[in-house]
């Protein structure tokens, strides 16, 4: 990226750029979650998010809380792994950084697999994007979150690839990994909000 200009506030410009981008992304997911919460009330044809009886007929709810809490746990652990990778990078312990970076990537991919499984399961149960408002807003929200996680995984892989080629810590590597860590943690806290509002909140 660009050279390190002297910054008036002492914050590195690249870190400041990441934080302001995350502020913008806050509004992005805020609007997505608003759409979901607005349509949460009136989903008027099956399949439904939770078990409900509609004029005498029982409909099995799609949302699988234990499975999703497992994937939430996976994403949480990937955040912990990320923090340790940043710790390793900043104390130039190359082995520790690479180890935890690989486990973060692994946990991230594991979380994505959970998502892919859940999407296929829902599609199989007949919930298409155009089936009802639950389908549309759910797929849009979790889809965009999944895309953010995917981009995060690509960034982490390219950082990992960068360290292998030079088998030593470049001057900025620690900084790049810390900034990537900020993005990764943000994606994790967005999932924390989604998990609570979508899966745990009663309908």
């Amino acid at each position: 990226m660009s050279e390190q200009a002297h910054s008036v506030t002492g914050i590195d410009s690249r870190k400041l750029l990441m934080w302001i981008f995350l502020a913008s992304d806050c509004l992005f997911f805020g609007a997505l979650i608003s759409t979901y919460m607005i349509f949460k009330g009136n989903i008027n044809n099956p399949p439904y998010p939770t078990d409900r009886i509609v004029n005498g007929e029982f409909f099995h709810g799609l949302l699988n809380i234990p499975l999703t809490s497992a994937s939430t746990f996976v994403l949480l652990m990937s955040s912990v792994a990320m923090v340790l990778a940043v710790y390793g990078a900043q104390n130039n312990n190359l082995k520790m950084m690479k180890g935890w970076l690989i486990s973060t990537i692994g946990l991230g991919i594991f979380f994505l697999l959970f998502q892919v499984y859940e999407f296929r399961h829902f599609l199989h149960e007949g919930l298409g994007i155009s089936t009802n408002q639950f389908g549309a807003s759910f797929y849009l929200m979790t889809g965009f979150h999944g895309v953010h996680v995917g981009i995060g995984v690509i960034i982490l892989i390219s950082l990992l690839f960068g360290t292998f080629r030079r088998n030593s810590l470049g001057p900025d590597t620690g900084f790049h990994i810390e900034t990537a860590g900020l993005y990764w943690h943000f994606v994790d806290i967005v999932w924390i909000v989604i998990f609570t509002l979508v899966y745990l909140m009663p309908y």
Binding site: L27, G30, A31, S130, Q133
Partner: peptide, 19 residues
């Protein structure tokens, strides 16, 4: 970002039959 969500939703409504 809020406009982006609205535009994506128009695009999905028109091309993927969401409602």
């Amino acid at each position: 970002p809020v406009l982006t969500i609205g535009l994506v939703q128009i695009y999905f409504d028109r091309n993927f039959d969401t409602n």
